[in-house]
Protein backbone atom coordinates (compact mmCIF):
# COMPACT_ATOMS: atom_id res chain seq x y z
CA UNK A 1 0.00 0.00 0.00
CA UNK A 2 1.22 3.48 -0.87
CA UNK A 3 2.02 6.00 1.85
CA UNK A 4 -1.40 6.83 3.40
CA UNK A 5 -2.80 10.32 2.90
CA UNK A 6 -4.39 10.19 6.31
CA UNK A 7 -3.33 7.90 9.15
CA UNK A 8 -4.87 8.02 12.61
CA UNK A 9 -3.85 5.97 15.63
CA UNK A 10 -6.12 5.82 18.69
CA UNK A 11 -7.28 9.32 17.83
CA UNK A 12 -9.43 10.84 20.58
CA UNK A 13 -11.03 14.19 21.18
CA UNK A 14 -12.77 15.30 24.34
CA UNK A 15 -14.73 18.57 24.29
CA UNK A 16 -14.98 20.36 27.60
CA UNK A 17 -18.52 21.68 27.92
CA UNK A 18 -20.48 23.26 30.74
CA UNK A 19 -22.17 19.89 31.35
CA UNK A 20 -18.80 18.17 31.67
CA UNK A 21 -16.51 16.44 29.18
CA UNK A 22 -17.95 15.01 25.95
CA UNK A 23 -16.07 12.22 24.19
CA UNK A 24 -16.47 13.29 20.55
CA UNK A 25 -13.94 10.81 19.18
CA UNK A 26 -12.69 7.66 20.83
CA UNK A 27 -9.80 5.48 19.59
CA UNK A 28 -10.25 6.17 15.90
CA UNK A 29 -7.89 4.08 13.75
CA UNK A 30 -8.15 4.79 10.06
CA UNK A 31 -5.75 4.75 7.10
CA UNK A 32 -6.78 6.42 3.88
CA UNK A 33 -4.79 5.65 0.71
CA UNK A 34 -4.25 8.08 -2.17
CA UNK A 35 -7.16 8.16 -4.61
CA UNK A 36 -9.69 6.62 -2.25
CA UNK A 37 -13.20 7.98 -1.86
CA UNK A 38 -14.03 7.52 1.82
CA UNK A 39 -17.45 8.25 3.27
CA UNK A 40 -17.93 8.85 6.97
CA UNK A 41 -21.50 7.91 7.86
CA UNK A 42 -23.40 7.86 11.13
CA UNK A 43 -26.12 9.59 13.13
CA UNK A 44 -25.73 13.07 14.59
CA UNK A 45 -23.17 13.22 17.35
CA UNK A 46 -21.11 10.28 16.05
CA UNK A 47 -18.12 12.52 15.45
CA UNK A 48 -18.00 12.28 11.66
CA UNK A 49 -17.80 16.03 11.18
CA UNK A 50 -15.43 16.33 14.13
CA UNK A 51 -13.10 13.77 12.54
CA UNK A 52 -13.14 15.76 9.30
CA UNK A 53 -12.42 18.97 11.22
CA UNK A 54 -9.50 17.31 13.02
CA UNK A 55 -8.03 16.29 9.66
CA UNK A 56 -8.46 19.90 8.51
CA UNK A 57 -6.90 21.33 11.71
CA UNK A 58 -10.16 23.12 12.54
CA UNK A 59 -10.20 21.12 15.79
CA UNK A 60 -7.27 19.68 17.77
CA UNK A 61 -7.25 16.05 18.94
CA UNK A 62 -6.73 15.51 22.65
CA UNK A 63 -5.28 12.01 22.36
CA UNK A 64 -3.65 9.60 19.94
CA UNK A 65 -2.00 10.71 16.73
CA UNK A 66 -2.95 11.79 13.25
CA UNK A 67 -0.83 12.38 10.16
CA UNK A 68 -1.95 14.12 6.98
CA UNK A 69 0.48 13.44 4.12
CA UNK A 70 2.97 12.38 6.80
CA UNK A 71 2.72 15.73 8.60
CA UNK A 72 0.68 17.16 11.44
CA UNK A 73 -2.72 18.56 10.41
CA UNK A 74 -1.44 22.07 11.13
CA UNK A 75 1.55 21.64 8.83
CA UNK A 76 -0.75 20.17 6.20
CA UNK A 77 -3.13 23.11 6.53
CA UNK A 78 -0.30 25.64 6.27
CA UNK A 79 0.99 23.74 3.21
CA UNK A 80 -2.54 24.00 1.75
CA UNK A 81 -2.78 20.25 1.29
CA UNK A 82 -6.57 20.08 1.22
CA UNK A 83 -9.70 21.81 -0.02
CA UNK A 84 -12.72 21.91 2.28
CA UNK A 85 -16.39 22.03 1.27
CA UNK A 86 -18.89 22.96 3.99
CA UNK A 87 -22.56 22.04 4.18
CA UNK A 88 -23.44 25.67 3.39
CA UNK A 89 -21.90 27.04 0.18
CA UNK A 90 -20.60 30.04 2.21
CA UNK A 91 -19.97 32.11 -0.90
CA UNK A 92 -19.19 35.74 -0.11
CA UNK A 93 -22.29 37.64 -1.30
CA UNK A 94 -20.32 40.70 -2.47
CA UNK A 95 -18.12 38.70 -4.84
CA UNK A 96 -19.11 37.31 -8.21
CA UNK A 97 -18.93 33.54 -8.71
CA UNK A 98 -15.55 34.01 -10.40
CA UNK A 99 -14.42 36.30 -7.58
CA UNK A 100 -15.43 33.68 -5.01
CA UNK A 101 -13.53 30.89 -6.75
CA UNK A 102 -10.51 33.17 -7.05
CA UNK A 103 -10.52 34.07 -3.36
CA UNK A 104 -8.31 31.21 -2.13
CA UNK A 105 -5.89 31.91 -5.00
CA UNK A 106 -5.78 35.58 -4.00
CA UNK A 107 -4.99 34.58 -0.44
CA UNK A 108 -2.22 32.32 -1.70
CA UNK A 109 -0.69 35.19 -3.65
CA UNK A 110 -1.20 33.82 -7.15
CA UNK A 111 -0.95 36.29 -10.04
CA UNK A 112 -4.08 37.91 -11.45
CA UNK A 113 -3.95 36.22 -14.87
CA UNK A 114 -3.34 32.77 -13.44
CA UNK A 115 -6.12 33.24 -10.88
CA UNK A 116 -8.66 33.99 -13.58
CA UNK A 117 -7.50 31.13 -15.79
CA UNK A 118 -7.55 28.55 -13.00
CA UNK A 119 -10.88 29.70 -11.59
CA UNK A 120 -12.49 29.56 -15.02
CA UNK A 121 -11.15 26.06 -15.59
CA UNK A 122 -12.57 24.86 -12.26
CA UNK A 123 -15.95 26.45 -12.96
CA UNK A 124 -16.05 24.65 -16.31
CA UNK A 125 -15.29 21.40 -14.48
CA UNK A 126 -18.41 21.80 -12.32
CA UNK A 127 -20.49 22.93 -15.35
CA UNK A 128 -20.71 26.57 -14.32
CA UNK A 129 -19.04 28.08 -17.37
CA UNK A 130 -20.95 31.22 -18.33
CA UNK A 131 -21.93 32.05 -14.73
CA UNK A 132 -18.64 33.78 -13.84
CA UNK A 133 -20.13 37.28 -13.64
CA UNK A 134 -23.21 36.28 -11.61
CA UNK A 135 -23.51 36.98 -7.93
CA UNK A 136 -24.29 34.07 -5.57
CA UNK A 137 -27.93 35.04 -4.98
CA UNK A 138 -28.56 34.74 -8.72
CA UNK A 139 -27.75 31.00 -8.58
CA UNK A 140 -29.79 28.08 -7.25
CA UNK A 141 -28.68 26.24 -4.13
CA UNK A 142 -27.22 23.37 -6.17
CA UNK A 143 -25.29 25.76 -8.40
CA UNK A 144 -23.97 27.63 -5.38
CA UNK A 145 -22.71 24.38 -3.90
CA UNK A 146 -21.03 23.49 -7.20
CA UNK A 147 -19.34 26.89 -7.13
CA UNK A 148 -18.10 26.15 -3.62
CA UNK A 149 -16.69 22.83 -4.86
CA UNK A 150 -14.93 24.68 -7.67
CA UNK A 151 -13.55 27.06 -5.04
CA UNK A 152 -12.23 24.13 -2.97
CA UNK A 153 -10.56 22.71 -6.08
CA UNK A 154 -9.20 26.06 -7.31
CA UNK A 155 -5.72 25.62 -5.90
CA UNK A 156 -5.69 21.98 -6.96
CA UNK A 157 -5.27 20.23 -3.62
CA UNK A 158 -4.82 16.46 -3.80
CA UNK A 159 -7.17 15.96 -0.87
CA UNK A 160 -10.80 17.06 -0.79
CA UNK A 161 -12.68 17.18 2.51
CA UNK A 162 -16.46 17.44 2.14
CA UNK A 163 -18.81 17.95 5.08
CA UNK A 164 -22.35 16.97 3.99
CA UNK A 165 -22.00 19.16 0.90
CA UNK A 166 -25.38 18.11 -0.53
CA UNK A 167 -27.22 17.77 2.80
CA UNK A 168 -29.32 20.90 2.29
CA UNK A 169 -30.35 20.10 -1.31
CA UNK A 170 -33.38 18.23 -2.58
CA UNK A 171 -33.03 14.65 -3.76
CA UNK A 172 -33.19 15.34 -7.51
CA UNK A 173 -30.42 17.92 -7.32
CA UNK A 174 -28.48 15.70 -4.97
CA UNK A 175 -28.58 12.71 -7.39
CA UNK A 176 -27.37 14.95 -10.17
CA UNK A 177 -24.53 16.38 -8.09
CA UNK A 178 -23.53 12.90 -6.91
CA UNK A 179 -23.09 11.84 -10.53
CA UNK A 180 -21.07 14.97 -11.27
CA UNK A 181 -18.91 14.49 -8.20
CA UNK A 182 -18.19 10.90 -9.21
CA UNK A 183 -17.13 12.05 -12.68
CA UNK A 184 -14.98 14.77 -11.16
CA UNK A 185 -13.35 12.25 -8.87
CA UNK A 186 -12.59 9.74 -11.64
CA UNK A 187 -11.22 12.57 -13.80
CA UNK A 188 -8.94 14.04 -11.12
CA UNK A 189 -8.13 10.98 -8.97
CA UNK A 190 -8.18 13.04 -5.82
CA UNK A 191 -8.49 11.56 -2.37
CA UNK A 192 -11.94 12.44 -1.00
CA UNK A 193 -13.20 12.25 2.56
CA UNK A 194 -16.96 12.74 2.46
CA UNK A 195 -19.27 13.14 5.45
CA UNK A 196 -22.88 12.13 4.91
CA UNK A 197 -25.87 10.66 6.68
CA UNK A 198 -27.38 9.20 3.54
CA UNK A 199 -26.71 5.50 2.99
CA UNK A 200 -27.43 5.47 -0.79
CA UNK A 201 -25.20 8.50 -1.28
CA UNK A 202 -22.34 6.84 0.62
CA UNK A 203 -22.65 3.54 -1.27
CA UNK A 204 -23.01 5.26 -4.63
CA UNK A 205 -19.89 7.41 -4.20
CA UNK A 206 -17.40 5.57 -2.04
CA UNK A 207 -14.63 3.06 -2.35
CA UNK A 208 -14.88 2.48 1.40
CA UNK A 209 -17.53 3.45 3.93
CA UNK A 210 -16.60 4.21 7.52
CA UNK A 211 -19.60 3.58 9.79
CA UNK A 212 -19.54 5.57 13.01
CA UNK A 213 -21.69 5.66 16.13
CA UNK A 214 -22.17 8.16 18.95
CA UNK A 215 -21.44 8.39 22.69
CA UNK A 216 -18.52 8.03 22.44
CA UNK A 217 -17.94 8.85 18.77
CA UNK A 218 -16.18 5.85 17.28
CA UNK A 219 -15.79 3.64 14.20
CA UNK A 220 -18.00 0.55 14.35
CA UNK A 221 -17.44 -0.87 10.87
CA UNK A 222 -15.51 -0.21 7.68
CA UNK A 223 -17.31 -1.49 4.57
CA UNK A 224 -15.53 -2.05 1.25
CA UNK A 225 -17.56 -0.75 -1.62
CA UNK A 226 -16.03 -2.19 -4.79
CA UNK A 227 -18.65 -1.28 -7.36
CA UNK A 228 -15.96 -0.25 -9.84
CA UNK A 229 -15.29 3.17 -11.27
CA UNK A 230 -18.23 3.27 -13.68
CA UNK A 231 -21.40 3.88 -11.72
CA UNK A 232 -24.60 5.01 -13.43
CA UNK A 233 -27.46 6.05 -11.13
CA UNK A 234 -29.25 2.77 -11.97
CA UNK A 235 -26.55 0.86 -10.11
CA UNK A 236 -28.59 1.67 -7.01
CA UNK A 237 -31.12 -1.02 -8.05
CA UNK A 238 -28.52 -3.82 -8.35
CA UNK A 239 -28.29 -6.61 -5.72
CA UNK A 240 -24.61 -5.77 -5.13
CA UNK A 241 -25.49 -2.16 -4.24
CA UNK A 242 -28.34 -3.25 -1.98
CA UNK A 243 -26.12 -5.80 -0.24
CA UNK A 244 -23.56 -3.11 0.65
CA UNK A 245 -26.31 -0.70 1.72
CA UNK A 246 -27.75 -3.45 3.92
CA UNK A 247 -24.41 -4.02 5.63
CA UNK A 248 -23.99 -0.27 6.28
CA UNK A 249 -27.51 -0.15 7.70
CA UNK A 250 -26.75 -3.06 10.02
CA UNK A 251 -23.54 -1.35 11.12
CA UNK A 252 -25.47 1.80 11.96
CA UNK A 253 -28.12 -0.16 13.84
CA UNK A 254 -25.55 -2.13 15.84
CA UNK A 255 -23.80 1.12 16.69
CA UNK A 256 -26.59 2.53 18.75
CA UNK A 257 -28.84 -0.40 19.47
CA UNK A 258 -28.22 0.19 23.19
CA UNK A 259 -30.04 3.46 23.31
CA UNK A 260 -33.28 2.42 21.59
Amino acid sequence: MAEPVIATRDLSLVFTTRDGPVQALSNVNLDIAPGEFISLIGPSGCGKTTLLRVIADLERATGGSIAVNGRTPEQARLARDYGYVFQAPALLPWRTILGNVQLPLEIMGISREERAARAKAQLALVNLAGFERKFPWQLSGGMQQRASIARALAFEPKLLLMDEPFGALDEIVRDHLNEQLLKLWSATRKTVVFVTHSIPEAVFLSTRIVVMSPRPGRITDIVDCDLGPDRPLEIRETPEFLRIAQRVREGLRAGHSYDV
Binding site: D57, R77, L78, R80, Y84, A88, A90, L92, P104, I107
Partner: peptide, 14 residues
Amino acid sequence: PDATARDLMRTWSA
Protein backbone atom coordinates in the same frame (compact mmCIF):
# COMPACT_ATOMS: atom_id res chain seq x y z
CA PRO B 1 -19.10 36.94 9.11
CA ASP B 2 -20.30 33.59 10.48
CA ALA B 3 -18.26 30.68 11.79
CA THR B 4 -18.24 28.90 8.40
CA ALA B 5 -16.76 31.93 6.62
CA ARG B 6 -14.07 32.23 9.29
CA ASP B 7 -13.36 28.46 9.13
CA LEU B 8 -13.05 28.76 5.37
CA MET B 9 -10.39 31.45 5.69
CA ARG B 10 -8.60 29.22 8.20
CA THR B 11 -8.56 26.25 5.81
CA TRP B 12 -6.70 28.51 3.38
CA SER B 13 -4.31 29.61 6.15
CA ALA B 14 -5.28 33.24 5.59
